[in-house]
Amino acid sequence: MSLHALADHPFAAPRSLAEACALLAERAARGERTVLLAGGTDWIVEQHLAPAPAADAPLPLVADVSRLAELRGVAERGDAIRIGAGTTFLELRRDPLVTARLPLLAAAARDVGAIQIQARGTLAGNLATGSPAADGVAALGALDAVLELASVRGTRRVPIAAFYTGYRRNVLLPDELIAAVEVVPPAPGSPFAWRKVGTRQAQAISKVALAAVAELDRSEGPGARLTRLGLGMASVAPTVVFLPEVRALGLGRPLASIDDEALAAATLAGISPIDDVRSTASYRRHVAVALVRRFFESLRAPS
């Protein structure tokens, strides 16, 4: 229990994105750690669970980014929708553009924790913490989101599939922050699935979760083909995974020709589940295969 150390942290409240980037750059150049604090729903919990820091270890600077206007808001930008990374899950599920054009993201936002967590938790926090169980990351992965990383050196864009390098590790440099995510919404009315399997509907970290979107060309009748397919699966690997083998199998060939056995093999190729406090590897494999199969069944069903 190291909660007392919380109050000892040095603190800063940059007033703009530029000021936040400058602060990060200065500290990174000196090799000093900075924690960007938004909703606190991961970092403050981690402090609660962490062992007490060594007395001589310098505490990181906590920089509050929760009020930076540049990190908020949802807007159309060309064909895409740009979402400020500091947008909370509660804002997402209530946003008219998100609910109309990105219903998958709205559904996932509604299943994050419960309202108290949704009111504080942000996309940036979900992405940066990088829990293998992150609901928001699974949904953004299915939507092939592009992350906008900002620093004093400018902005670079990283596809979500290239963001994670391992368990809770990513390509963010010490002087960078996640400023926004950009998503090209599927055609209106496109099928999607959000399935979170856990012990309880709210406040439960998933045993397995699947986010999926597809666009379907039905012009050939029974030869209907997928023209877009995105999947994100949580709690089945060290990071959220995007099931490239299933995408490769599903894209471009007639839906009716994709059999369950091949689908199961492709799903299993993309995951590496373990036994842990929430579930077992074998149950996770079973559920992962079933969730992907059911999504494809829903696509084959006549609309």
Partner: peptide, 10 residues
């Protein structure tokens, strides 16, 4: 909000 997860300065 959960007041255990909100920093005073916020």
């Amino acid at each position: 909000v959960n007041s255990c997860l909100v920093a005073a300065a916020q």
